[in-house]
Amino acid sequence: MKFTSLLLAVVSFFTVALAIPVNLDKRDVFVPPILYPHSGTVWTINERHNVTWDTSNAPVNITNSKGLIMLRKDNMATPLILAEGFNILLGRFEITVPWVVEGDDYSLVLFGDSGNWSENFTITGSDISF
């Protein structure tokens, strides 16, 4: 009796599971290459810059179209989020260069569907004196 009840429960579960409509639209991962900043770029703390990326090969259906830009240093992500929640298909987004230690080993990570990072560039101090 227990076996029959268990078998009936399993069959019922699979019958219901198979009856649920599933959206099978094909979705593609979009990894747009970052165009700016690039190697040789020098940013100064507190300046505003447009981070730009190539959207010319964007697929029709993108898995995640909400973008996020983070700063990397020494090829490691930092907790600094420079922008978030923008449409990845914009191809650019303006950010303010954060107060960080000067160096030439910075890069940006552009998240949407996938993470893509820029070439290394330099961040220098500002002209503000105290």
Rank of each mutant, 00 (worst) to 15 (best):
D74Y: 08
N64Y: 05
V10M: 12
H49M: 06
A83W: 02
A9Q: 04
F86Y: 15
V11Q: 12
D105M: 03
S118M: 05
T41L: 03
P33G: 05
L68S: 04
P21V: 06
D54A: 11
F93K: 06
L18I: 04
L82I: 12
I34F: 08
G112I: 01
W53G: 01
S12N: 10
D113C: 13
M76R: 14
S118G: 10
T63Q: 14
L89W: 01
G115N: 12
L82K: 06
L6S: 08
L108A: 06
E119Y: 01
E84S: 14
L7F: 13
K66N: 13
R48K: 15
W53S: 04
S39Q: 14
I81R: 11
L108Q: 01
T41G: 07
W43K: 01
V101P: 03
I81F: 06
T44V: 12
D74S: 15
N23D: 15
D113M: 02
R72W: 12
L108M: 09
I81K: 11
T52V: 09
L110N: 01
N46F: 13
I20N: 08
G67R: 00
A19M: 09
Y106R: 01
H49W: 07
G115R: 07
F13G: 08
P21Q: 11
L110M: 10
L7P: 00
F111G: 01
I88L: 15
N46S: 13
T44K: 12
F30N: 00
A19P: 00
T44W: 01
T15P: 00
A19E: 03
P32I: 04
E102W: 01
K2Y: 07
G91F: 01
Y106T: 02
T4Q: 11
F13D: 06
V97P: 00
L8Y: 10
V22M: 10
Y36D: 03
V100T: 11
G115W: 03
K2M: 06
F3S: 13
F14I: 13
N50P: 02
D25T: 14
A9W: 02
E47C: 03
I20R: 12
A19Y: 08
M70T: 15
E119G: 05
R72P: 00
K2N: 11
I95Q: 04
P79G: 15
P33I: 07
M70F: 04
V22D: 12
I45K: 05
E84V: 03
L35I: 15
P79N: 15
V109G: 03
T78S: 12
T44Y: 05
L90S: 14
L108N: 00
V22S: 14
V42Q: 11
N75Y: 12
V51C: 04
G103C: 09
D113H: 05
E84T: 12
D113Y: 02
I20E: 11
L89Q: 09
E84D: 13
V31H: 10
W53R: 04
T4V: 14
V16W: 11
T96G: 06
T52L: 01
T41F: 01
M76Q: 15
L8H: 10
L108W: 04
S5P: 00
P37H: 08
D25M: 06
R92D: 04
